[in-house]
Design a protein around this nucleic acid. Structure first.
Length: 872
RNA sequence: GGGAGCAUAGCUCAGUUGGUUCAGAGCAUCUGCCUUACAAGCAGAGGGUCCGCGGUUCGAGCCCGUGUGCUCCCA
């Protein structure tokens, strides 16, 4: 044993030492055996990612669950991995190439991908290394990447299969277009933000009339794409214009004025410009009224030839210019400030452009049905349960999923086109040709594969089973053992992106749910409640914090401020609290080491403290178990924290502490080490490093490391009598210390204590403890009042404190009177209740019993206080 | 516009099928202590119209209605 312990816990060396040791012992590696599995698949972070607060929270929670499962004898398996993140990664690679003076457009697909793979090998997956610093007990041998060869193949197979089933189709539809990344986005990849804009009122001339019609729009740059003006048929202002024509300003195109109830009469002017190419609702309106579609934008957001004017100019530049020109030429009636939601690309943060485009789609209707059922019937449980509603709402109104992306980095769509554009879907070119041959009776000419990739989520929805090769090697031993996984821990933001789709894929391909429980974490905010963001600069440097406070303190800090089902307000002060906690435990260890050195062969009857703490440990273990099953991790940690700091350090250790330089009885020492060990085990999932270190320091030559130790399960429940007695003891000590404080008796000054009680047996074996804790030179039972003393009533007992100092009884009297008043009021309310016939009739028997007991207790106490007051 | 949720101490939150020994915890605050494990600490204390109003009930922080304020999701 290391006899010279450092002043404080040295987290850096301990973290390194133990993580390396655990890896060496392969504690995190799991293989199927005859134990029950407990499996978590980590939500794969982007391969481009670096550790931020969200990951930290998320992975700490998973590690807590996994370590706890491991200690309870489950075969715990936590699978790491990364997501290829097509848009994010491609953007990074493009940026890197640009810095080197290489344009993506100058590269072939193959060359670009080779650069991308180089980038991935070099910079990808840093985040996994960072998770080691946090102490995550992941099975690294199972690390998976969504573009690993087997995984890639499975994604392609799934596409082909769904196409064969008729669920995947190709179609021209309105999509969200990212003008920077030059790709389609799914609805879920569009972030809506409140944006201040200008609402332009523009006058359109009417054919054969001097009259005009004024429309209101936030997008004047799209007027060249207008193919109608629409009014509400019930709008009296415009009834005479139905069927007439108007002219688009500046380009003078003739467009019809149509009527449709879709238009809101009291918004703007009640007249709507219809631009089917650039607005989803207008597009629907266009189909309904068979309007022409004029696309005035290029894919990069500049004006197209069809716009006729400002061709090649950026859409926002055009907006400014065209507004100016409209004003100059008298078309602009007025502009007003207007705030509405505008869609931004999740990845590039540019304003998303609704656009008509030929894409691949996945019809979600049928595939969603079993996935909805699984959650509604609680085959899969959501925590907090409020997310079931959100989920249901989305699933019941589900729309087709646009699965193609105009990117190179990702799973290339397995579709081939012949010269005429006929499409053939197959796993690879060979099979496609075969299929083509069978269908058309000839070999295809100029057969070309689709240039596009699949949406990233089209690969990650296979994650829970494909990490075990459940689709590429169906029915293998691992998938049978580990699937369905137990718990998914993830952010609520991706409930649709990912959670819902994993359930669909699981049901479709494994015929079983992918996980039994989903725990949604909160969003990490700063202490002012703002989201963490680069622009605000309020994201802390996580690795710096881990260096400074240690991984355990960081984990503590983030968990303690993370109430179940709520956002977490991150404050560095919480890490400080964690570090202080480390320090506290470390000092307890030092104290116990000192006792070890003074060891004799002394054995004693176990003192009350020992009996009490045993029960307390049982009690808290039960509480923690309950909280953990309900995912109340923050509360569980608080409970353990308080058990260690308050009950163990502040009470237990003080109660068993021997006098100055006195030895501690050997058996009491052993109990103490056992308790400390159990406490470390209980805390280990939350703070793995310090607990392992203390555990190893407590005793030489441990047979097994804490990381792999099985926790004891209590065979009996906690003894309530002993717990109650412990509580009374605490109350007495606190009460007398309060007297000392209020009387300004110096800590070093001793007192004499007299106890007046009807239950002297209550104090058996407690005199030493009480004397030590309140610094009393003597304690005696008394049947009479003690003159010149300060009186206090605690529970059913009266205590008389005698000190050198003159007693200030005015304060004391006031306090007793105050308490008497409260008690009388309380008694009154109980009496009233008990004399209320309807209460006695309606209330349950045990409630009435309780009330009677309250009455009795209150009366007793009142009597004692009145006696005390009478003698003063 | 549709849906979901929240409102309890200065801050962040607990509060189980309604039962005043039930209004709680942590942090923060205040007072006294460098007491031989720990000042990153010890001991003690103060602090709340449970958002407003109305209802159900013998009894409401908890149930119902309504108002106000905030958050999130979807269109």
């Amino acid at each position: 044993m290391n006899t010279a312990l450092s002043k404080n816990f040295e987290h850096q060396s301990a973290e390194q030492k133990w993580y390396a040791h655990w890896l060496e012992k392969k504690y995190f590696h799991s293989t199927p055996d005859n134990r029950t599995p407990y499996t978590i698949v980590m939500p794969p972070p982007n391969v481009t990612g670096v550790l931020h607060m969200g990951h930290c929270l998320n992975n700490t929670i998973q590690d807590i669950l996994i370590r706890r499962a491991r200690s309870k004898g489950f075969n715990a398996c936590w699978v790491p991995g990364t997501d290829h993140a097509s848009i994010a990664t491609e953007a990074k690679v493009v940026a890197m190439l640009r810095e080197q003076g290489i344009a993506k457009s100058s590269l072939s697909r193959e060359d670009f991908l080779s650069h991308a793979w180089d980038w991935k090998e070099k910079y990808g997956g840093i985040i996994l290394q960072q998770l080691k610093k946090l102490g995550c007990s992941l099975d690294w041998d199972r690390t998976t990447f969504t573009m690993d060869p087997d995984y890639y193949e499975s994604v392609i197979k799934v596409f082909v299969d769904l196409h064969k089933k008729g669920v995947i189709y190709r179609g021209k539809r309105m999509i969200n277009w990212d003008v920077k990344a030059l790709t389609a986005l799914s609805d879920e990849e569009v972030i809506r933000k409140e944006t201040r804009q200008k609402l332009y009122h523009i006058r359109y001339a009417i054919e054969g009339s001097d009259e005009g019609i004024v429309i209101a729009t936030v997008r004047p740059e799209t007027i060249m794409g207008d193919t109608a003006i629409c009014v509400n048929p019930n709008d009296d202002r415009y009834k005479h214009l139905h069927g007439k024509f108007a002219f688009v300003p500046l380009i003078n195109r003739r467009i019809p004025i149509i009527a449709d109830e879709y238009v809101t009469m009291d918004f703007g002017t009640g007249a709507l410009k219809v631009t089917p190419a650039h607005d989803t609702n207008d597009y629907q309106l266009g189909i309904k009224h068979q309007l022409e579609i004029v696309d005035v934008l290029n894919d990069d957001g500049t004006m197209s030839e069809a716009a006729q004017i400002y061709v090649g100019l950026d859409r926002f530049e055009t907006r400014k210019k065209i507004a100016a020109e409209l004003e100059e030429k008298g078309y602009l009636q007025k502009t007003e400030e207007y705030t509405s939601e505008v869609g931004f690309s999740e990845r590039t943060d540019v304003v998303v452009e609704p656009r008509l485009s030929l894409q691949w789609w996945l019809n979600m209707k049928d595939i969603a049905t079993p996935a909805l059922k699984a959650v509604m019937e609680e085959e899969i449980q959501f925590f907090p349960p409020k997310f079931r509603n959100v989920y249901r709402h989305w699933m019941e109104n589900i729309k087709d999923w646009c699965v193609s992306r105009q990117l190179w980095w990702g799973h290339r769509i397995p579709a081939w086109y012949d010269e005429q554009g006929n499409v053939t879907v197959a796993e690879n070119e060979e099979k496609a040709i075969e299929k083509y041959l069978a269908e058309y009776g000839k070999k295809p000419e100029r057969f070309k594969q689709d240039e596009d990739c699949l949406d990233t989520w089209f690969s990650s929805w296979l994650w829970p089973f494909e990490v075990f090769k459940g689709y590429s090697k169906p029915g293998n031993k691992e998938i049978q053992y580990y699937y369905p996984t137990n718990t998914l821990v993830t952010a609520p933001e991706i409930i649709f992106f990912w959670v819902a789709r994993m359930i669909m894929a699981g049901e479709e391909y494994m015929k079983a749910i992918p996980f039994k429980e989903v725990y949604f974490t909160g969003i990490v905010r700063d202490k002012l409640g703002r989201k963490m963001s680069k622009s605000l600069g309020n994201s802390p440097d996580l690795l710096g914090l881990i260096d400074q406070y240690g991984a355990d303190a960081s984990r503590f800090g983030i968990m303690i401020s993370s109430p179940a089902g709520n956002d977490i307000l991150f404050d560095e002060a919480a890490l400080e609290q964690g570090r202080n906690f480390n320090n506290k435990m470390w000092n307890a260890l030092k104290l116990i080491h000192m006792w070890k050195e003074r060891s004799t062969d002394l054995l004693v009857e176990p003192p009350f403290a020992v009996l009490w703490f045993e029960e307390r440990l049982k009690q808290v273990s039960e509480e923690v178990e309950m909280m953990m099953t309900q995912f109340r991790l923050s509360e569980a940690l608080k409970t353990i924290y308080s058990l260690i700091w308050d009950d163990f350090c502040s009470w237990y250790l003080e109660w068993v502490k021997p006098g100055y330089e006195q030895p501690l009885a050997d058996n009491v020492y052993d109990f103490t080490v056992d308790y400390f060990t159990e406490l470390m085990q209980l805390l280990h999932p939350f703070m793995p490093f310090i607990t392992e270190e203390i555990y190893q320091q407590l005793e030489n030559n441990r047979e097994i490391d804490l990381c792999a130790r099985q926790s004891k399960t209590a065979t009996t429940s906690a003894n309530q009598n002993i717990l109650e007695q412990g509580q009374i003891l605490k109350d007495i000590i606190t009460g007398i210390r309060d007297v000392r404080n209020k009387q300004q008796i110096k800590p070093k000054e001793t007192i004499q204590l007299f106890i007046q009680t009807e239950t002297p047996e209550l104090f058996n074996g407690l005199y030493d403890v009480i004397g030590k804790q309140v610094n009393a030179s003597s304690i005696q039972l008394t049947e009479n009042t003690v003159p010149g003393s300060f009186t206090t009533v605690i529970g059913k007992n009266t205590f008389y404190v005698v000190s050198e100092k003159p007693i200030d009884s005015s304060h004391q009297k006031a306090e007793l009177e105050k308490e008497l008043e409260y008690l009388k009021g309380f008694l009154n309310s109980v009496d009233k209740k008990l004399s209320n016939e309807r209460f006695v009739q309606n209330a349950k028997a045990e409630i009435i019993e309780l009330e009677k007991k309250k009455k009795n207790d209150a009366e007793n106490k009142i009597r004692i206080i009145e006696e005390s007051l009478g003698r003063m």
